[in-house]
């Protein structure tokens, strides 16, 4: 039932801490979908999520083929974890997922980030995780808006109609 007193969503602050295809794309779809609806979006990449905004890694992200019970063969048969351990399988499965997404007009990571910033969305990196992985700003995607502490991030999450989303 629709509640007429509902206040519309105005801003989303999205945190991505993992570097798999599904985590990164969930983040990118949420952020892009927000700016397409006129909702402000700020995205904070931390820990392994930093891969999505690290030049060297951003277009090479994979999905895990081990320990993923929802993973199935094309056609729906179960995908045994031991298969996922074989060399090249993870890369092959990831390439297949990316080609399926391309068919739905879902772009590679760098282009997706450009779409988000074209709509006014902002992309940030976590300072602590950068220090941990020994990354410098030069390693990051060029249009990154900055490197933040957690306090800086919370400072951006104010205002009525703001939600923090952790993918």
């Amino acid at each position: 039932m629709k509640n007429n007193d509902e206040k519309p969503l105005k801003k989303v602050c999205i945190i991505c801490a993992k570097g798999t295809i599904e985590d990164v794309y969930a983040t990118l779809v949420l952020a892009n979908g927000a700016v397409m609806e006129g909702i402000e979006a700020k995205v904070f990449f931390t820990f392994f999520g930093l891969d999505a905004i690290t030049k060297k890694q951003m277009n090479k992200i994979h999905t895990g083929t081990v320990g993923n019970p929802a993973m199935r063969m094309p056609g729906g048969l179960p995908f045994p974890s031991v298969l996922g351990m074989l060399p090249g399988v993870e890369a092959g499965v990831s390439a297949m997922m990316k080609s399926q997404m391309e068919k739905l007009d879902i772009p590679p990571v760098d282009e997706f980030l450009e779409m988000i910033t074209a709509g006014g969305g902002e992309i940030y990196a976590c300072k602590l995780a950068m220090d941990m992985f020994k990354l410098s700003e030069g390693d990051l995607w060029e249009d990154c808006s900055g490197v933040l502490t957690v306090g800086d991030f919370y400072g951006m999450c104010g205002g009525e109609g703001t939600q923090i989303i952790f993918t």
Binding site: V35, E114, M115, A118, G119, G120
Partner: peptide, 8 residues
């Protein structure tokens, strides 16, 4: 026709 920024 236009890029995405232009579309916005």
């Amino acid at each position: 026709i236009t890029d995405i920024k232009g579309l916005y």
